[in-house]
């Protein structure tokens, strides 16, 4: 593959890169400044605390305060819920996308249309009906309530992304070749479809992961015990009184942003490795 030269000069590109980094990082930097500030120096309007301290970070890591007394357990809860949700969304959506985009039944259009109808009531307004549904199914208090809700509301979008990609960039000759070899639909799905779908699956997987990872309202409503809560609920608990421990809150949030970034970093190769489909030719 050839590296294609951009019309823009490298200097301009670097300028864009720097601008982008500043734009992205300024609010994150501000969070860092707040988390490094001692309690009497919060929001003092300085660009760097006069007396920076790592106390807030060590408080979080050692669970050294009432507000973060279950940090590690709840981090684990978040991870469990987010990973299971991501896997669930990927499994359900790749199967459905395979059916819609490759098997192309008559009702493919109907399915994608009705999937989009999921969004007919904005999700934030569905919290109460969903609470009632979960109560009916006796799932209140269980992390599965949160997982199932995330999977259900993440899947329509995942289905759309995956089926678009599957239509656009997997040559149909691949299926046909496999069919001639006598492979059934399931074998095509596992051996041809899934490997070729890696790039959009990474994006969709991260999407589903973050959907569950950062969900506050449903997590709070569906879970009941502090031991099964996810961390966003704890972050929300910082707003319990009007006397807010801003530094500990921001330190917790910064820690919490790391796992998704690391996961993305680990899978990044799969997204930007170029067109997989283009590389496969008969």
């Amino acid at each position: 593959m050839k590296t294609r030269r951009s019309a823009l000069s490298t200097t301009a590109l670097v300028a864009v890169g720097v601008l982008l980094a500043v734009w992205t990082l300024l609010p994150v930097y501000h969070m860092l400044v707040v988390s490094l500030s001692p309690s009497d120096e919060l929001f003092a309007g300085r660009l760097w605390p006069e007396d920076p301290t790592l106390t807030a970070f060590s408080t979080v890591l050692t669970e050294g305060d009432f507000t973060v007394e279950r940090f590690w357990l709840q981090l684990w809860n978040s991870l469990f819920v987010a990973v299971v949700s991501a896997v669930g969304v990927l499994a359900i959506a790749t199967l459905a996308a395979f059916a819609v985009a490759r098997l192309r039944p008559r009702w493919a259009g109907l399915l994608t249309t009705s999937a989009l109808a999921t969004y007919v009531i904005p999700l934030s307004f569905l919290a109460i009906p969903l609470y009632k549904a979960m109560a009916n199914y006796n799932l209140l208090g269980s992390q599965w309530a949160l997982i199932l809700a995330t999977i259900t509301f993440g899947s329509p979008y995942a289905l759309w992304v995956l089926s678009q990609y599957a239509r656009a960039s997997i040559p149909s000759e691949l299926d046909e070749a496999a069919t001639i070899d006598g492979a059934g639909a399931w074998r095509i799905y596992f051996q041809i479809f899934l490997p070729l779908m890696r790039p959009p699956m990474v994006v969709v997987g991260i999407y589903a992961f973050l959907l569950a990872w950062n969900e506050y309202l449903m997590a709070f409503l569906f879970l009941s015990e502090e031991d099964s809560m996810t961390l966003p609920v704890t972050l929300g608990n910082f707003l319990n009184s009007d006397q807010i421990q801003w530094n500990v809150m921001m330190a917790t949030a910064l820690f919490y942003a790391l796992p998704p970034v690391l996961i993305y970093y680990a899978f990044q190769r799969n997204v930007s490795s170029g067109s997989t489909a283009g590389g496969v030719k008969n």
Binding site: L25, P27, L210, N214, Y216, L235, L239
Partner: peptide
């Protein structure tokens, strides 16, 4: 990062 940082805090 802006996508990964918990929205409430950010």
């Amino acid at each position: 990062l802006p996508w990964a940082v918990p929205v409430v805090s950010a």
